[in-house]
């Protein structure tokens, strides 16, 4: 197989990061990154994006009334069983 083009490389970044590229492709991917400033930058930005997604501030949780309702439902369901 021939060397990755940049256009092909950007399509397999997720497969690469997930260790799903077979070894020859993995080596080709890394060889390309060492030789190509554009792709190295692109993959760096891709990784930074994935990292930033994992650092998003936490979502608000359930409202207090919903939480109380669920706890009451849990309590009630166990009572009817025993």
């Amino acid at each position: 197989m021939k060397r990755f083009s940049c256009e092909v490389l950007v399509d397999v970044v997720t497969a690469y990061l997930d260790h799903e590229l077979a070894e020859p492709d993995r080596d080709r991917f890394e060889d390309h990154l060492r030789a190509c400033e554009g792709c190295a930058r692109y993959v760096g930005q891709f990784r930074a994006t994935v990292g930033a997604l994992g650092e998003l501030p936490p979502q608000e949780t359930l409202s207090a009334p919903t939480r109380h309702r669920l706890l009451a439902a849990f309590r009630a369901s166990r009572r009817t069983r025993s």
């Binding site: 083009s5 940049c6 554009g38 930074a48 930033a52």
Partner: peptide
């Protein structure tokens, strides 16, 4: 299949990608 133009560099990842405006974009 090569870049016509490289992607432009971003600010340092640890800094501004986590800044609040970038988070709003995400």
């Amino acid at each position: 299949g090569q870049w016509k133009q490289f992607p432009a560099a971003w600010p340092a990842p640890e800094g501004e990608i986590l800044a609040s405006e970038a988070r709003i974009q995400i």
